Simulated scan of single mutants.
Amino acid sequence: MGRDIEAMKALNEAHLQEPQVGDMWEEMCNWVCVVLDVTPDTVTICRKKKAESSQWWSWDLAEAEELTRAEFRAWLSYGCIPGTWAYVHARRGKGDAEYWRDKFAKPERAYEFEVD
């Protein structure tokens, strides 16, 4: 059973334009970022990973970075042709986002995203 490439492209584009908290992006079976927060102007992501043992890793959530929405789109887009170089797994990292919100987010911000 193959993947529906056009459906994947449409999902990527939808989440590129309107990122969701917990979206995880991967390229060639390698996770490249998790979306931690979304505002009307910015997207907070984590790209950095840390080894937890010789067998697994986790996101280094202390190293989260805030991008403008334009920067986020530009980073994931090819630029010279339509589309993205990574694929979204919608809200797969929602637990990571919830943990970041509780442990690392700025307390003066109101984080009102829903985590199922």
Results as ranks from 00 to 15, higher is better:
Ala70Tyr: 06
Leu11Gly: 02
Ala7Asn: 08
Glu27Pro: 02
Tyr78Asn: 08
Lys94Val: 13
Leu36Arg: 10
Ala90Tyr: 07
Val34Trp: 04
Tyr111Ala: 01
Val21Lys: 08
Arg73Met: 08
Lys106Glu: 06
Trp59Thr: 06
Ala64Asp: 12
Ile45Gly: 10
Gly95Ser: 08
Arg3Ser: 15
Asn30Thr: 15
Pro82Arg: 04
Arg73Lys: 14
Val43Glu: 02
Cys46Val: 12
Arg109Lys: 11
Glu71Trp: 00
Val88Ser: 04
Ala51Leu: 06
Val34Tyr: 04
Arg3Glu: 13
Trp25Gln: 03
Val38Thr: 03
Gln55Val: 04
Gln17Leu: 06
Lys9Gly: 09
Val43Ser: 06
Gly79Pro: 08
Ala70Arg: 09
Trp100Arg: 05
Cys46His: 03
Gly93Thr: 06
Lys48Ile: 04
Thr68Ser: 05
Gln17Gly: 09
Met24His: 05
Ala110Val: 15
Trp85His: 12
Glu108Gly: 07
Thr42Gly: 04
Met8Thr: 13
Asp37Arg: 02
His15Gln: 05
Trp31Ser: 10
Glu114Asp: 12
Ala86Met: 02
Gly95Gln: 14
Asp37Trp: 05
Val115Phe: 12
Met8Trp: 05
Gly95Arg: 14
Leu76His: 03
Ala97Thr: 13
Ser58Met: 09
Cys33Phe: 11
Asp23Trp: 14
Lys103Gln: 13
Trp75Cys: 03
Thr39Glu: 04
Ala86Lys: 05
Glu108Met: 12
Ala105Ser: 15
Glu13Gln: 10
Gly22Val: 10
Glu98Gly: 06
His15Cys: 07
Ile5Thr: 13
Glu65Tyr: 00
Ser54Thr: 08
Gln20Met: 09
Gly83Lys: 00
Trp56Ser: 01
Gln17Met: 05
Val38Lys: 01
Thr42Tyr: 10
Phe113Ser: 08
His15Tyr: 05
Ala51His: 10
Ile81Pro: 01
Asp116Ala: 12
Val35Thr: 07
Pro107Asp: 01
Cys29Gln: 13
Glu26Phe: 10
Ile45Cys: 14
Arg69Gly: 09
Glu52Gly: 03
Ala90Cys: 10
Leu61Asn: 13
Pro82Ser: 06
Ile81Gln: 10
Gly79Met: 01
Gly83Cys: 04
Glu63Val: 08
Lys50Val: 07
Lys103Gly: 01
Val34Asn: 10
Ala64Ile: 07
Val35Gln: 04
Tyr99Asp: 14
Arg73Glu: 12
Gly95Glu: 14
Leu67Cys: 00
Thr39Gly: 11
Met8Asn: 09
Glu18Asn: 13
Gly79Gln: 00
Ala74Asn: 11
Val38Pro: 03
Cys80Leu: 08
Glu66Lys: 11
Ala10Thr: 12
Arg92Met: 11
Arg101Val: 09
Trp100Ile: 06
Glu108Val: 15
Val115His: 12
Ser58Phe: 06
Thr68Pro: 00
Trp100Leu: 07
Lys94Leu: 09
Asp37Asn: 11
Ala7Val: 11
Arg91His: 08
Glu112Thr: 11
Asp116Leu: 15
Glu114Lys: 14
Met24Asn: 07
Arg69Pro: 01
Val32Lys: 13
Thr42Trp: 02
Lys106Asp: 13
Lys50Thr: 09
Ala97Met: 11
Arg91Gln: 15
Pro107Leu: 04
Leu61Ser: 07
Thr39Ser: 15
Arg3Cys: 14
Met24Val: 15
Ala64His: 13
Tyr78Ser: 01
Glu65Thr: 08
Asp41Arg: 15
Arg73Asp: 00
Trp25Leu: 03
Pro107Trp: 01
Leu16Pro: 00
Tyr87Leu: 07
Glu114Ile: 12
